[in-house]
């Protein structure tokens, strides 16, 4: 199925959870935040929250800034 991740189209398998996606991106241990269709998903829900076709996902972290 196709989702949009950080503005880019991405193919991912059906039934994939946020935890799966985060692991696939190598971000499991990092301080990140995830939004799906503008809703923030709490970290404790990553393993339960399944992605759906057309979901718009934002994965953010901290970068240098003033």
């Amino acid at each position: 199925m196709t989702v949009k991740l950080n503005g880019e189209t991405r193919e991912c398998r059906d039934g994939m959870t946020i935890a799966d996606l985060v692991a696939e991106l190598g971000l499991g241990a990092k301080r990140i935040a995830v939004e799906v269709n503008r809703d923030i998903i709490p970290r404790e829900d990553y393993a339960q929250h399944r992605l759906h076709v057309g979901d718009e996902i934002e994965v953010v972290h901290f970068v240098g800034g003033g």
Binding site: L25, V60, H61, V63, G65
Partner: peptide, 17 residues
């Protein structure tokens, strides 16, 4: 710090924190 999108193409790399 600033909040920005993770760069998906090299997302596993080290980061600021």
């Amino acid at each position: 710090v600033a909040v920005r999108r993770v760069n998906i193409t090299d997302s596993g790399k080290e980061n600021l924190l």
